[in-house]
Structures are given as C-alpha cells and as structure tokens.
Nucleic acid binder design. Structure first.
Lengths: 194, 194
DNA sequence: GTACATTTGAAACGATCATTTCAATTAAAA
DNA sequence: TTTTAATTGAAATGATCGTTTCAAATGTAC
C-alpha cells in the first residue's frame, strides 16, 4: 500500500561519508547533508533518525569499505609481509590522492573530534581498533611461522605497533603530502619486521 | 591615563587551550570561553580579536610549552637515544594522565579538524611539523655520531619516522588507554634505532 | 577631584543550527 | 478508481552561534 523509498540508500550514505569526512561532524550542517545527498530534510530524519545516527551509520560504512579493501589485499598477496606492505601502500596512496582535500583518516578525525563526547562513538572506535589489531596480529603470526617476519617481538606487540604507525602515517600525510617522504616512512616502519 | 588590562593573559590563554583541546574548535562556543576564562565576552574580543585569533594564539602557546618540555629533556639527558626515549615516555604519560578526558594531541585534533579549512592554521601546522622533524633530525644525527643510533637509515629518514610514530602514539592512546600496551608500542618504535 | 582612555557588563544583532510540523504528493494495494 | 500509508517539500520551531553595540564602571595621570 505505501509509497516506497525511492532513493538509493548506498549512494546517500556514500555522499554523507564524503561530507562528514571532509568537514567533520560539527562543521557539517543538516543543509550540507541535504545538498550532498539530494534528499529532503524530512526524508533524512525519516530514514536515518538524527544527524548523529546518520554519522554512526557512516562510520560503519567506512569500516566495511576499509575491511573489504584489506581482505582484497590479503587474497591477492603471496606473503604476510607483502600483505602488510600493501596495506600501508594503500593507505599512503589514499592520503596522497586526497590532494589536500580532506583530513586524514575518517577514524582519526572521529577519534579527536568525538571519542570523548559520545559514548556510542567511543565504543565503536575502541571495537574497531581492537579488530584492526586482531587482524594485524593474525597476519604477523602467519608471517612469523613462515619466517618472513622476525620473532624479536610477539605478534600481538607488532600488531599494536603497526596499527599505531598506520594511524600516524595518516595524520602525517595530511601535512606532509609528499610521495617520497611517505614512502620512506613506510619503509622505516616495516623495517622492524625484517 | 587609561584603565589597564587587569586579567592575567597567561592564565586566560592556558584556560582557553584546555577548553579548545577538550572540545575542539567547532564545539567550543564563545560562552564556553567566557566561562573558562572568567573574562567578559567583550574583553575577549577586545584583547584577542576573534575566536579564531584566540585559537591560533592557543596553538602558539601549546607549541611553546611542548618545545620547552623537550628542551628540558634534552638538557637533562646524557645520550641522544635516551632523549628520544624520554620524549616518547613524556608523551605516553601525557596521554595516560588525560584519563579519557581529552582528545589526544592538540595538534592532531587541530590537523583533522582545521588543516584544510583554514590556511593560516595549515601554514602553522606544516611549519610546526617541519620544526619537529628538524629537532628529531638533530638528535638522531648526534646519536649516529656517538654510535648510540645505527646508520641503517639517515637522520632525516629516522626523524620523519619518529614524528609520525609519535603522532600515531597520541592517537592510539586515546582509544588504548593502557600503560603496558603503550609502553610496548614505544619500545617497538624505538627498536628501529638500536 | 577632574579629565580621559580603556575595560566591562548586558543586551541585542542577524545568521544558522538540528529538529519538528503538517499539508500536499505519491504510488502500491484494494 | 478508490483507498491508504509513506514520502516529500516548505515553513516554522526554539536554541544557540559568533560578533557588535553602547552606556556604565574603572583606574591612571594631571
């Protein structure tokens, strides 16, 4: 009986991610979201709840995309160390392609802007961080079995180190938009594992 | 002849830094600054210009404090590697002491929130980043002369790596508020230099 | 004590914020 | 075609935003 939702939900979220990522949560107005998505104000509230609800849905979308990118790399890579290398290179390329147009990793931005003001978001970010560490731990563990990664430190220690370094890279990249420098940083980060 | 400024400018800036650092620029209202500093709204505009002007003054204050902390460490340290170690430990302690109360490094927050929306701020942040890299480069260079730091990579490469890692540590620390984990990260970061 | 330049307090500015309201429109089901 | 329930558009809500205004209060120099 009812009229059905006409817009493409995926597209709307995608556009919302772009907007939030480029302006941050607090600087993004509902009007910005209306303009970016093409939806009417009331449609956004009808379909997504509130600005914060939509933002959190964007975080999940960004997380899903990130994980898919990593899984694709894992499938294509022939060794653990090259998986890690490619993950870092992907992030490097990501930072560089943003050509001064955006503010590093969406999660880093979210962490500094929201983590200590919204419990729902802090919870999400911690869970995301833990799962990223777990993901790296699995890769490193396998690499240590293959002897492609040294055993100076255990997989768990290397994992939290790598996640931290990756976050640093994505912050640094905002101010240091230079291919050669970022490449050098990645090399140095990964040299610990050799 | 004139009535003279009665408030303590240092104190006011200090309180403004706390406020901006804890809420970010966009979430901090002029009323928040009035409450935090005890100044009247008009006094703030009279003495500091605008909200943005005050924010930039806060960035300079934070930069000055950070540099003073590092200089104190440099004077007290007996070797380059221990200088670097202490800088990282200071930042670790800083993150931990903030007990879920604040959002990592003020500069990281500023980078993700403001770098691509305010040219004056982007300029400041890049200059700050360059000077931090230079500072680390000098320390590493000296360490390499003393043979307390290896020469696998040159001082400049280690410097940008260390600055990046430090930024990562201060982001990670917001979500990973655990002494043992942070200590392990710092150890791994510094192990490259051995 | 008077004159003067500045700070101060309170109110007001117009703009914009996130959200709500509600009548008109729409399209599927009867 | 009529019924029906959701979507849509536009206007309005009350709150808050950064900033300005201006008269009163203040403290220094004469």
């Amino acid at each position: 009986m009812p009229k059905v939702e006409t817009f493409n939900r995926e597209f709307v979220i995608q556009e919302a991610v772009k907007t939030f990522h480029s302006k941050g949560y607090n600087l993004t107005s509902m009007q910005d979201l209306v303009d970016a998505t093409g939806l009417n104000r009331s449609s956004i509230y009808n379909s997504f709840g509130s600005k914060l609800d939509l933002y959190i849905e964007c975080l999940h979308k960004y997380q899903k995309d990130t994980k898919e990118d990593i899984e694709e790399i894992m499938v294509k890579s022939y060794s653990s160390i090259s998986t890690i290398q490619r993950i870092f290179c992907l992030n490097m390329a990501d930072v560089l392609s943003q050509n001064n147009n955006d503010n590093g990793c969406f999660f880093n931005q979210c962490t500094t802007e929201m983590a200590n003001h919204e419990d729902r978001i802090k919870f999400f970010l911690i869970e995301n961080q833990v799962s990223m560490v777990q993901l790296f731990e699995d890769i490193v563990e396998q690499g240590q079995k293959n002897e492609s990664i040294n055993k100076n430190k255990n997989a768990s220690e290397y994992a939290i180190y790598l996640v931290t370094a990756l976050q640093g890279l994505r912050i640094s990249g905002v101010l240091m938009n230079d291919n050669k420098q970022l490449k050098s940083i990645v090399e140095t980060i990964l040299s610990v594992l050799e």
